[in-house]
Structures are given as C-alpha cells and as structure tokens.
Amino acid sequence: MIEETATVVAATPDHIWVEARARSACSSCGTQDSCATSSVSKLFGMRRQQLRLPNQFSSSVGEQVIIGVEDQVMVTASLAAYILPVVLMLGAAIIADVQGMSDKQQAGIALLGLLLGLLGAGMLTSNRRMNRYFQPQLLRKITPHSLPLSLKGRGEQDFITGDTP
C-alpha cells in the first residue's frame, strides 16, 4: 500500500475533502542543487490535490490523515497511462509498414495510434466503475503524540518528582 499524509480542508458528516501536496522526486535527490531538472521543478512549484473521501473517522477541518492506494491500483494506472498508448502507437506503425505506406504516412498513423491510446487510457481511468477502483482510501487519523511523564535518562534528574536515579 502506498501511503501519503493529507490535511482535511473541508468536512461534512458524510464526506471530507483532503489536500495532499504532490512532491517531485527532485525534493529528495542529493544533487538537486546542480541539476537543471530540479530548477525547472522549483519553477513550477508544488501542486496541491484535493480529494473527496468518505468521512469514516469523523474527521474535522485541520486534522492530518493518512490516505492510501493499493500497489495493484498503481500498477494498473501506470499500464493504462504509459503502456497502452505506446503499444497502440507501435501497433499502428507496424500495420502501416505492412500495408506499404510511405514514411510520412507511417508517422501519421503512428501518431494517430498514440492519440487513440491516450484517449483509451483516459476513458478507462474515467469510467465510473473504475473511478471507485482508482479512488484512494482513508486509512487513519494522525493523532498527536503525548509527552512521556518521565523524561529520565542516564544520570538525569526525574522532571516529575525531582529524584535522581
């Protein structure tokens, strides 16, 4: 399961709207100071995404929650977004070549195959039934951690009672 922290920005008894920041891979890379891709990423900034989810934990505005997507959902979405258009483009180009078309015609047919693949991927992922499949799940609330009563360490004084170990 792929998990992400999100903030509740609106809430009703039935649904919450959460906002998660989309981070680029450049934010965790060690060479981001000397990389042109990192500079472009900083130029466009961070995108904010808002999602509507069922309010199963009675969350309220301002709370932090964990949302998640199953690994298989990510694989399916990746295949639809990347593999389907490329396969249709290559298939269209091969068919155009077998038919004996000119290079310009083959390029045009390949482009048409790519566009049909992108359209097909969009239709597949926007289908109402599949929309529920791709929908992230609300996993849990993030609760603030309470401080321990005793902050004793080696040779330190107990802050609660004033005793030494």
Rank of each mutant, 00 (worst) to 15 (best):
106 Q>I: 13
96 A>F: 03
25 A>R: 15
1 M>A: 07
11 A>T: 13
6 A>I: 12
64 Q>W: 04
23 R>G: 02
105 Q>W: 12
119 L>C: 10
148 P>D: 12
22 A>D: 07
108 G>M: 11
125 T>P: 00
56 Q>R: 14
155 G>Y: 15
95 I>H: 01
142 I>Y: 08
8 V>W: 07
28 S>N: 13
146 S>Y: 09
58 S>A: 11
87 V>H: 04
105 Q>I: 02
120 G>C: 05
150 S>E: 14
165 P>G: 11
43 L>R: 15
104 K>V: 09
5 T>K: 14
136 P>E: 14
93 A>W: 03
77 A>S: 07
80 A>K: 10
92 A>R: 03
164 T>F: 15
83 I>D: 04
112 L>E: 03
161 T>V: 06
161 T>M: 01
9 V>L: 02
59 S>N: 13
104 K>D: 13
4 E>T: 12
130 M>I: 10
116 L>A: 11
127 N>H: 15
76 T>C: 03
30 G>K: 12
65 V>E: 01
71 D>M: 05
115 L>K: 07
156 E>N: 15
159 F>S: 14
108 G>K: 12
44 F>H: 12
93 A>V: 09
37 T>E: 03
29 C>G: 03
114 L>A: 05
120 G>F: 12
23 R>C: 03
65 V>M: 01
106 Q>P: 00
137 Q>V: 09
18 V>F: 04
63 E>C: 01
72 Q>S: 05
40 V>I: 15
152 K>F: 03
14 D>Y: 11
78 S>L: 02
112 L>R: 04
40 V>A: 05
97 D>C: 04
131 N>W: 05
31 T>K: 13
137 Q>E: 06
153 G>Y: 12
62 G>N: 07
92 A>P: 00
162 G>P: 01
33 D>I: 11
134 F>V: 15
143 T>D: 07
148 P>S: 15
105 Q>V: 02
58 S>W: 11
103 D>P: 00
87 V>S: 04
45 G>D: 09
49 Q>E: 10
76 T>P: 00
154 R>K: 15
